[in-house]
Structures are given as C-alpha cells and as structure tokens.
C-alpha cells in the first residue's frame, strides 16, 4: 500500500471538512424547510442523519492526529491549516446539532395548529443558510474578504431575532393558548441565532487561515478593512 504523502493527507482532510460542511448545510436547509412547510417526516430525517455527521467529525479528528504525528516538521502554513480544521470542525458539527434541535421543536409544533403565518422566520432562516454557505465557500477558497462580509451579516440575524422575540412575547402575554407554541418558536430562533454565531466563528478561522491573524478579540482592528461591495 502506498504511504500517504502530506499532500494527499491534507487534500483528504480538506475534502472531509468541506463534506462535513455540506452535510451541515443540508441539515439546516432541511430543518428550515421542515419547520416552514410543517413537514415532520423531513424533520425526523434531519434527526436520523445526524449520526453520520458525528462520525465524520471523529474521522476528521483522527486524521488531524495522524497528520500531526506523522509529519513532525509541518510547514507553518499547513500547520495553521490543521489547527484551523481542528477548531472549525466542532463548530460545523454544532451547527448540525442546532439543526437537529430545530427539527425536534418542529415535530412538537406540528402536533398543534400553526400559531400564525411565518413571515420573519423564513427570512431569518434564509439569511442563516446563506451565511453558512458563504462561510463554507470562503473556507474553500481561503477568501478572507468573503469571510468578513459574512461576519457583517450577523447583525441582520440579531435584528430579526429581536423582532421575532418581541412578537412571540406579545403573543404569550395576550393569549394563554399560544404560550407553548410561542415557547417552542423562541427555542427555534435561539438555535438559528446560535448557528449564525458559529458561522461568524468559522469566518474568523478563515481569516486566520488566509491572513494568519486572529480577529476574534479585536473586531475594531478589521472593521475598517476594505470590503468589496
């Protein structure tokens, strides 16, 4: 058997991380669709697909460990990549977990009549989906500009979160029968908001991979960066 070279190892690692990203994207898209279209079968599928996502995460961890043991003198850029992967993978996996939680709340919500037609919620889910896709594209291309653009969209999500939160609180205080469903929806928007936070963290890792600098704790240092429209 051929001994894997550093190049093939790194290529396999990159493939696996991005495939994991693709699986999280699917989980989020399916969870959002199941919620909006009230499709409990699809929600159930999101829950059962998660086991595979967890096992891919373990494979990635193992591969990183192998690379680090086999290649004692990794070039700095490759070392940064492996560290970046080790940091990013749990975030991608957590995103899928949040999608699973949305699916669980969806199944409960579907047992009861719809509270009201969703307007802001599909918009919030759509933005989060777009952010996740953009962050993975940025990761694919090590595109720091795209990553920073994506981080900026987090404020849109926070704004919608606030708005839906207030609306649901108003429902709960005015109608006792709406309390349970509103509470379920409060969880759903919290999960979406958390996913957007993880996407932000992934983007920060992309900047680290591309530019070698950590922007997590110093937003003021990069907020002024030139950003393409």
């Amino acid at each position: 058997m051929d001994v894997p070279t550093l190049e093939t190892d790194l290529r396999m690692l990159r493939d696996k991380v991005l495939l994991l990203g693709g699986q999280s994207e699917t989980a989020l898209s399916h969870a959002a669709r199941a919620l909006i279209q009230r499709d409990s079968t699809l929600a159930q599928q999101v829950i059962s697909d998660d086991d595979e996502i967890d096992s891919v995460e373990s494979e990635i961890d193992e591969l990183c460990a192998q690379i680090l043991t086999r290649q004692r003198n990794l070039p700095p850029e490759d070392l940064r990549f492996v560290i970046g992967v080790l940091r990013t993978t749990p975030m991608i996996e957590r995103i899928a977990d949040h999608a699973v939680n949305i699916a669980r709340h969806t199944i409960k919500l579907n047992d009861e009549p719809q509270l009201k037609p969703f307007i802001d919620l599909p918009r919030m889910a759509e933005i989060v989906k777009q952010m996740l896709a953009a962050s993975l594209d940025a990761l694919t291309q090590r595109d720091a500009i795209r990553a920073k653009q994506t981080i900026r969209r987090d404020t849109e999500v926070d704004l919608l979160y606030r708005r839906i939160f207030n609306e649901l609180m108003a429902f709960m205080t005015s109608d006792l029968a709406a309390v349970t469903r509103s509470a379920e929806l409060l969880f759903v928007i919290k999960h979406l908001e958390r996913i957007a936070d993880y996407v932000t963290n992934i983007c920060e890792q992309v900047v680290y991979l591309a530019e070698g600098r950590v922007i997590k704790h110093t937003p003021e240092a990069w907020l002024g960066d030139a950003v393409e429209p």
Binding site: R14, D15, L18, L19, G21, G22, Q23, T140, Q141
Partner: peptide
C-alpha cells in the same frame, strides 16, 4: 455548480459541490 464559465484547468470536486451524494 460553483464552476468558472471558462475552464482553465482541473477543479477539485469538493470545490464544485459539497453535496455528499455526489461524492
């Protein structure tokens, strides 16, 4: 898919699509 309109050289499949079924 994510592909340049004009092909300039081989592209890694994962860069074209992250879809598990395709891989």
């Amino acid at each position: 898919f994510n592909l340049p309109a004009v092909m300039t050289g081989p592209v890694r499949l994962i860069d074209v699509s992250r879809n598990k079924t395709i891989h």
